[in-house]
């Protein structure tokens, strides 16, 4: 009784919000087969290995090693509460790299990628940040060129925006070759945890993952983990070979690119 009274007194000084709202159900997709992604993320030895594909000759441009901008210690310390006390934040980074994707049959795709991140923000404690106020927009853009099976007449071009999460917009991208178009976007999905196997009960398990989900003609064809820890790649087994190679190349870009901002 005493405890009820004490907690009642405490609650006189407290106001509580209402309970959570109704939300849409997270999608469950059991058609996609999972593959573990093994990554090497050392400064001079970067690569990935998954679903029968592995990277080869990964090269990063020397310009990717440097970033330019004003040094603001307050940016690091005061970030935790989301309260910007610093006056100016100017930052510029690039990430330029290329690699080959190899399977048992040999080189299946060659990819060249360039990512640009430019940030020019003026912050004040009493108003929200808005780089568009002075008509200066942040740039968070990635583009890539994927050549599949050494076919120079059919090159896939990739464009993605906000992959570093610098804005509150969707993190998404598009890969196009002629009429064919694959789209991807950051999403939360329940996906199979282990590959389907005979008499394997564990293949019925699913888990919640933040992924980049790939869609082709409004149909989900694959996904790759957004987080680095415990990374997986999911793919439909009966997918067209070219689409699979393109999706594997794009997934490698998303795994091995540098986070220029978080």
């Amino acid at each position: 009784m005493k405890k009820v009274y004490i907690s009642f007194l405490l609650l006189l000084f407290v106001s509580l919000a209402h309970a959570q709202q109704q939300r849409d159900r997270v999608g469950v997709d059991m058609q996609l087969q999972p593959y573990k992604v093994s990554e090497r993320l050392l400064p001079f030895n970067r690569g990935a290995d998954f679903a029968g594909y592995r990277t080869k000759t990964f090269r990063r441009d020397i310009r990717s090693w440097f970033s330019f901008g004003s040094i603001n210690i307050e940016n690091e310390i005061l970030k935790i509460d989301g309260i910007p006390l610093y006056k100016k934040d100017k930052h510029r980074s690039v990430d330029i790299f290329s690699f080959s994707l190899v399977a048992d049959s040999g080189v299946v795709a060659k990819t060249e990628c360039r990512a640009i991140f430019r940030k020019n923000e003026t912050f004040s404690l009493f108003r929200p940040k808005d780089s568009s106020f002075f008509k200066i927009k942040n740039v968070d853009f990635l583009q890539a060129r994927i050549m599949v099976d050494a076919d120079t007449s059919n090159i896939w071009y990739m464009a993605a925006a906000n992959l570093n999460g610098s804005e509150n917009d969707e993190q998404s991208g598009i890969i196009r070759c002629g009429e064919k178009e694959i789209r991807f976007a950051k999403a939360t999905r329940m996906l199979r945890d282990e590959p389907v196997g005979r008499d394997k009960v564990s293949s019925l398990f699913t888990s919640l993952n933040i992924v980049y989900e790939f869609t082709y003609k409004d149909e989900v064809i694959g996904a790759v983990s957004f987080k680095q820890s415990g990374r997986k790649f999911w793919c439909k087994d009966d997918l067209d070979a070219t689409l699979k190679k393109v999706m594997a190349s794009v997934s490698t870009v998303l795994c091995l690119r540098n986070d220029l901002f978080y």
Binding site: I71, K79, Q228, N258, D259, Y262
Partner: peptide
Amino acid sequence: SGGNDRNSGITNEERLLKVFNMSHDN
């Protein structure tokens, strides 16, 4: 299991903060 979840190099701010025994990790 746990670990750093950021795939990038150290920034200039982080290098300076490490001198004062401070760090900011994801």
